[in-house]
């Protein structure tokens, strides 16, 4: 009888639970793990002449990454991703704070809808819109010229600045939403308690509000940093040929240069770095703020 119960229990544990998660697992297998496996295998092959691979094992593709030209692109991508994350945080935090501290729920919801409104249009289309705004005869230059603030049109498009503007615009909602969620959860009496104990606004922010909303900061930063690292539409359209990020490099290797193995090794390295960062965060960075 005991034996039966034990077996029944373990069936319940693995059999049932396994059944429940199997569609999710299948999905993951089909669209994530299998392509990842293919990329992994490709990254150790020699390039085929017209795309594709020759099945000879080699480390060359990984060595090639260390080539200063490519290394520079990788470092540049990290720099852009960090910059974008920081700017999104600096803009997003006050916005999220403002939204979550509104008293009227209706007003709050309207603001939140405004934040996610851009998602109703395709990202590509929205990036094209920035093209129209930033180009020489575009909206900004026209206005500045008309007002007589500048005499010559500014060179805005196809610069680092244009890329950053496009990226901040594109990823800001990913920062605001998790920040909103964690600021909304913040108990206002904790802020009052800090004031009560002698903290001025500055101290209340640094010692209470910031640490308690750090889960939102971290979640938002990951949600902005990771996709920015792989961004390629924005640098491609707004940076022109001048700005190249890892995403563009990978795309170039697969579609233009037809060096699939090198493209694969680049993809894999980005993946490993991102994964490493996430693991470091989970292991050491998890703040103990949950009540």
């Amino acid at each position: 009888m005991k034996d039966f119960l034990l077996r029944y229990k373990s069936w319940g544990k693995e059999g049932k639970a396994g059944f429940l998660i199997s569609p999710a697992f299948l999905w993951l297998l089909l669209f994530f793990l299998i392509p990842l496996g293919i990329i992994f295998v490709y990254s150790f092959c020699e390039r085929g002449n017209y795309g594709g691979v020759n099945w000879n094992f080699t480390f060359e593709n990984y060595k090639q990454v260390l080539n200063p030209v490519y290394l520079k692109t990788i470092l540049y991508s990290f720099w852009i991703a960090i910059l974008n994350t920081v700017i999104c945080l600096l803009i997003g935090y006050p916005m999220a704070y403002y939204i979550s501290t509104r008293k009227s729920t209706v007003f709050k919801n309207i603001l939140l809808i405004l934040v996610i409104l851009p998602f109703w249009t395709d990202f590509l289309v929205r990036t094209y819109a920035w093209l129209v705004i930033l180009r020489e005869g575009g909206l900004i230059n026209t206005i500045l010229l008309q007002m007589g603030i500048i005499q010559e049109p500014l060179k805005l498009l196809f610069t680092d600045l244009a890329v950053i503007i496009g990226l901040v615009y594109g990823y800001l909602p990913f920062m605001i939403l998790p920040l909103y969620a964690s600021i909304e959860k913040l108990d206002p009496s904790l802020i009052e308690a800090a004031y009560d104990l002698g903290a001025n606004g500055f101290n209340v922010f640094w010692k209470v509000i910031l640490p308690l909303t750090s889960p939102g900061i971290i979640a938002g930063s990951i949600l902005v940093f990771v996709p920015t690292l792989g961004a390629y539409i924005t640098p491609d359209l707004l940076g022109g040929a001048k700005v190249m990020m890892i995403g563009n490099l990978i795309q170039q290797q697969f579609l233009k240069v037809k060096n699939w193995p090198f493209g694969s090794s680049l993809s894999f390295i980005v993946l490993i770095i991102v994964l490493a960062l996430l693991i470091i965060y989970i292991k050491f960075g998890e703040p103990e703020v949950e009540k």
Partner: peptide, 18 residues
Amino acid sequence: PYRRNVNTVFQNYALFPH
């Protein structure tokens, strides 16, 4: 409040969880 010489014991205690 931070310049007043009074302190409060809050109903829900409001201890800093972090």
